[in-house]
Structures are given as C-alpha cells and as structure tokens.
C-alpha cells in the first residue's frame, strides 16, 4: 500500500528526515515512536502533503502512484487521511458541513453521486456514537471550543465517515486523559479491517496498550534506528529514549 524509499526532507533548508525507508502493507498497524524533534510529525506531514516540506531525495509510492506528485486533496481522495496533532478551529462552519463536504469531495472524485441527505444523517449519527461525542457537536463550528480530547475524537469521527485506506494519526494521543485515550483507541480499533492500514505516530507507549501494532519503528535524528514488534514499545517505555539516540541506522524492513 505504502512504500517509502530513502526519503530525505528539509524544512527551511534544515535537514529533518535523513533517509527513511518503510513499507506498510494492507491491514497493518505501524507505530512510529521517537523523542521530540526526531522527525515523527515531519513524516506525517510529508505523507499528507503539507506545504513547506522539501523532499530532497527518495520516493514514496502509495497504491501504485507517486505520492509526492499528488496534491494534498488528491491524496485525501485516494484514501490517505491525516488525523492532526493540533486540529484547527474553524468557527463559522459547522462540523456537519465539513463532514458532508469532505465525503462528497471523495465521492465526486470517484464518479459517485452526492450522498443522500437522509442516508448521510443516519451515517453520521451512527458514527458519532462510536467516538462518544454528543450529536450537538455536529452543529457547532469545526472544533470551536472543543476540549483537547473532543478535538481528537472529532478527528476520529472524520476518519470514520471518510473510511480511508491509510490512516495516519499524528500524536493523536498527546494531551489526552486515560478515558479519552481509550475512546480514541476504540475508534481506531473499530476501523481496523484487512484492507485498511494505520501509521500511529506517538511519543508514548500507552496508546499501544489499546491499539496493538504489527510493527514499532523508532525514529531518532531523522532516521529509523530500530524496528521491532510491540515489545519494542514496552522496552522504550522502560528505558526511555536516551539509549536509542546513538544506535546505528537500520535499513528498514
């Protein structure tokens, strides 16, 4: 599904990623862990196509296409979804408008007709229950006045409605209390299918208590320094990140 091949990325001429290679197959859950400044969020943003990141070398293929030549909206329409670390607030446009506009943008790109209003409402009402948000959140401005946990659950709601193929969660667990963390994890687990893949970018191991990854990658200094199974996350939790910084670079799976 996703094949990242030795990408190097700069922001304002400063190297951030220094050769990342990673393959994600359908149905797999990959956790990307690492200390602050290791390049985790940069990787998420490069995959989603955020402006301001210069890929100076390497390639990324997604569903057989050259991801780096695709605009952010084309990536979204091709099933790539980024759950933001800091979801933006957009007062003045309701949450439900965004959900409908986004779903119809995807449907239009696939040659489908606009979703029927009643079907859409039924879909949204069923999905919002899975993230434990009240229906009143649909009619509020996008993330307007939402708590940190509500914003993150709102990201999961968008993910649930849009049913992407590749879900990238950029530190979705940061700033969440244990109840909100479990709700986010429940939302992710409910979306797991043999076709859908996840990249969970996280600083802490605790999200992985609730979402079992297939592989854990440790990022340090803009490169993957260690790859392993779920036990690697536990090891990091026990030892911290200090010991990992000086490990030699792995070539990746």
């Amino acid at each position: 599904m996703l094949s990242i091949n030795d990408i190097h990325v700069q922001v304002d001429d400063k190297p951030i990623l220094n050769g990342i290679t990673l393959t994600v197959n359908p149905g797999e859950v990959h956790a990307i862990m690492g200390p602050n400044g290791s390049g985790k969020s940069t990787l998420s943003n490069v995959l989603a196509g955020r402006p301001g990141y210069q890929v100076t070398a390497g390639s990324i293929r997604y569903q057989g296409q050259d991801l780096l030549t695709m605009k952010p909206e084309e990536r979204a329409r091709a099933g790539l979804f980024l759950a933001f670390q800091y979801p933006v607030e957009i007062p003045g446009v309701s949450n439900i408008y965004l959900l409908k506009a986004a779903l119809n943008a995807l449907r239009k790109s696939r040659g489908q007709t606009e979703v029927d209003a009643m079907d859409f409402l039924a879909l949204v009402k069923s999905k919002i229950k899975t993230v434990n948000l009240d229906e009143s959140f649909l009619y509020r401005g996008i993330n307007e006045g939402f708590s940190g946990g509500e914003k993150k659950r709102n990201e999961i709601l968008q993910m649930a409605i849009l049913e992407p193929l590749l879900c990238i969660l950029d530190e979705t667990d940061s700033g969440l209390d244990i109840d909100a963390l479990k709700q986010v994890a429940d939302g992710v687990n409910a979306l797991r299918t043999p076709e859908r893949s996840f990249i969970l970018v996280t600083h802490y191991q605790r999200l992985l208590d609730y979402v079992q990854p297939d592989q854990v990658h440790v990022l340090a200094g803009g490169r993957i320094v260690r790859t392993g199974g779920p036990e690697l996350a536990l090891e990091l939790e026990a030892k911290g990140y200090g010991w990992i910084e000086h490990l030699p670079r792995e070539t990746g799976p």
Binding site: P72, E73, R75, R77, I90, A105
Partner: peptide, 9 residues
C-alpha cells in the same frame, strides 16, 4: 491545509 487534507480543493 486542514480542509484540503479532507479532500476539498
């Protein structure tokens, strides 16, 4: 960027 990442042009 948030909106285009949701599929809007």
């Amino acid at each position: 960027f948030f909106l285009v990442s949701r599929g809007l042009s």
